[in-house]
């Protein structure tokens, strides 16, 4: 076991994982520096989500190591990983997975309340974050009454409210239209930079990846320097039509 470099907040080596036999990741190594925004890019099915889940301790890689701040994550028990996720990590799903029974501010305050904060303190922090992300007006609405982009912003607020060390965002803007996508991403990155939060951002969109400090490309579960997919050729199998008909 080699100790990771000191300036990496998150460091992974040789991550290999397969979902019930279907290969997802093959020997992926990467380091995430403190305070940077790292984009993990690649087409669908290239193993981005699996990589993020391995890094955040939701999934134990079958091979390889994950270190967080010089602590091995891959040797932790499930309870310790759970506490690590609760206290140090934030997670944003591709779909806004809010608790439908709670209002927006209660959803945002939930991570703090689960950590044992008082209700008043949690509410204040939640309302502040909702204001910062321009959804302060929705604080008392339930998720069903919000627009999709508003919900996603509430999710971002929920991930940021606990001031995590690392924020994992798995295609946070995939279901949104482009205008909303840009807005949500900019608020996310701005908030992360101003609070010194490290962000690992999975995306298949080059425009989204452009907002990051650094990009790691994945293709078919392997890390690649650049993705050069062959251009789709002419429609296969169709006979060329002739103009002389």
């Amino acid at each position: 076991m080699v100790a990771p470099p000191d300036n990496d907040v998150l460091w992974a080596r040789g991550l290999t994982h397969a979902h019930d036999g279907s290969p997802a990741l093959h020997s992926v190594s990467l380091g995430v520096r403190d305070g940077e925004i790292l984009a993990v890019s690649g087409p669908r099915g290239s193993g981005k989500t699996t990589l993020l889940r391995c890094l955040s301790g939701q999934l134990l890689p079958q091979e390889g190591e994950v270190w967080f701040n010089s602590t091995p994550v891959h040797t932790m028990g499930p309870l310790t990983r759970e506490r690590l996720r609760r206290d140090r990590f934030g997670w944003i799903d591709p779909e806004p997975a809010l608790v439908p029974e709670l209002t927006a501010w209660e959803n945002v305050a939930l991570p703090l309340m689960l950590r044992g904060f008082g209700r008043r303190a949690a509410k204040t922090a939640a309302l502040e974050w909702l204001q910062r992300l321009d959804v302060g007006g929705c604080a008392r609405k339930r998720p069903y009454a919000l627009l999709h982009s508003e919900r996603q912003r509430v999710v971002v607020a929920r991930a940021l409210v606990g001031s995590p060390t690392v924020l994992f965002a798995d295609e946070p803007t995939a279901p949104l239209h482009r205008a909303e996508r840009g807005h949500v991403l900019r608020t996310l990155t701005a908030a992360a930079r101003s609070h010194g939060i490290t962000v690992v951002l999975a995306t298949h969109d080059p425009e989204t990846a452009a907002l990051a400090d650094r990009t790691v490309s994945l293709l078919d579960g392997r890390r690649v320097r650049t993705v050069h997919l062959p251009q789709p050729a002419e429609t296969e199998g169709r006979a060329a039509c002739s103009l002389s008909v």
Partner: peptide, 16 residues
Amino acid sequence: AETTAALLRLGAPATA
């Protein structure tokens, strides 16, 4: 089940 899974991803303790 979906909401529960989302809560667990947040790091909500299973005991809670």
